[in-house]
């Protein structure tokens, strides 16, 4: 292996590692945002009509 190959490997590891972690953060955040409305159950208003999520208030 030449010196330059070690250098290139170092850059690939560093930038690849950071990119992977960054992408995992974005993916986990999106997944969490998708799950949040799911944990807030359908609610019913005074007339017994069910609404999705917790956006509406009574």
């Amino acid at each position: 292996m030449t010196d330059y190959a070690y250098v290139e490997a170092g850059y690939v590891v560093a930038l690849g590692g950071l990119a992977l972690y960054g992408a995992s953060l974005v993916a986990r955040e999106r997944a969490a945002r998708r799950r949040i409305p799911a944990v807030v159950p359908a609610r019913s208003d005074e007339r017994g009509v069910e609404h999705e999520g917790g956006a509406a208030s009574s």
């Binding site: 953060l25 955040e29 799950r35 949040i36 807030v40």
Partner: peptide
Amino acid sequence: VWFVAHRYRLAGLQAREEAEG
């Protein structure tokens, strides 16, 4: 800074999910 800001937000979402769930 970008990593920490995103991870902090994710932690907030996870805490909210845990509490609401």
